[in-house]
């Protein structure tokens, strides 16, 4: 190959990002460029939040990370993180990409980086070691949270928040340092939560999600021939966002199966349940909080939110 793209990745090898998303994209790129561009996937052992800088400055050519790891810098994509907005990961990811193309691009939150894809993980749910019959059951319980808009929700639920990265959940649950964690159901399998939780309570639209970005170094892209540049972009954007969202979403089903197999009590709530109604009431206004939080951006936030919602409902059909 004429050019090698070094991809920075993290998370365990079993996660769908590493078992599906990267290998598939590698195939796509190598095929589209007829082998002129080779993709090498490397494990990033530093803090995942530094991946954005590492890609911008050319330590790696491509990488992915969580937007909320850099609070204050990437605020726009959080539109997908508003509790109760998305139904599943693929839909949320594609809707987010469309909204980015139409509304967010102008603001240049990603200046210094070439954005290849935006995606979200499946709806975050309650993984607990106590049954959740009503929202009062959560009051004062120690819950691990990661960051982003879910922090606001945790505040409103009056839980005792214990902030820690997702991979710490297993240890903290097992030791009883926390009584539960907000995470998508995929983590019942990937992080082996099924071994340490007793109850998995599924809200129809989940409680939150997390936005991820896949980014590339612009100089690396610029250094390629126009043909190869176009080839790479043709297998990125919406196509890559959809791939990633679908892969992460599929994990959720595996997680639920794993939970059931390990004797975790899985509760599917429906729109009519009192607890779901109470949660919706609690979530009211978090969308407003997002709109306020991006007031310093050159974006019509209200229109963007409406467009995002329209996309979600259209894609869900």
């Amino acid at each position: 190959a004429e050019t090698t793209l070094h991809v920075a990745t993290w998370l365990p090898p079993t996660s769908s990002q590493n078992s599906i998303v990267w290998p598939t994209w590698k195939q796509w790129v190598e095929k589209a460029t007829e082998g002129r561009v080779e993709v090498v996937i490397e494990n990033y052992t530093g803090d995942p939040k530094t991946i954005f800088d590492a890609v911008e400055d050319g330590v790696y050519d491509v990488g992915f990370s969580v937007n909320a790891y850099l609070p204050g810098r990437f605020k726009l994509a959080s539109v997908a993180e508003i509790p109760g907005e998305i139904t599943d990961a693929e839909v949320g990811s594609v809707a987010l990409w469309h909204t980015y193309e139409k509304f967010f691009k102008a603001d240049q939150e990603f200046r210094g980086l070439e954005l290849l894809a935006l995606f979200v993980h499946g709806p975050g749910q309650l993984n607990t070691n106590f049954p959740v019959k009503s929202l009062d059951d959560l009051k004062g319980k120690k819950m691990r949270i990661g960051g982003g808009l879910v922090n606001t929700l945790a505040e409103r639920l009056e839980v005792t928040p214990v902030s820690a990265p997702a991979p710490k959940s297993y240890e903290m649950m097992q030791q009883g340092v926390v009584d539960g964690t907000f995470l998508p159901t995929s983590q019942q399998k990937t992080l082996r939560l099924s071994e340490v939780t007793t109850d998995l309570t599924l809200f129809p639209k989940g409680l939150y999600t997390t936005a991820f970005s896949i980014v590339m170094n612009p100089d690396t892209l610029e250094s390629l021939s126009k043909k190869d540049r176009d080839a790479i972009m043709s297998v990125s954007g919406e196509k890559l966002s959809r791939l990633a969202g679908a892969a992460w979403g599929k994990e959720d089903q595996d997680g639920i199966l794993e939970a059931k197999a390990n004797g975790v009590k899985v509760i599917y709530l429906s729109e009519d349940d009192a607890i779901v109604k109470a949660m919706e009431k609690l979530e009211e206004g978090i969308d407003k909080a997002w709109i306020d939080s991006v007031s310093d951006r050159k974006v019509d936030a209200k229109a963007a939110l409406a467009y995002f919602r329209k996309n979600v409902s259209e894609l869900s059909q």
Partner: peptide, 16 residues
């Protein structure tokens, strides 16, 4: 030579 990449790598290690 563009030293930025190597310098950022080392800087990130220090800061992180």
């Amino acid at each position: 030579f563009r030293w930025t990449a190597a310098l950022t790598l080392a800087s990130n290690r220090v800061i992180g």
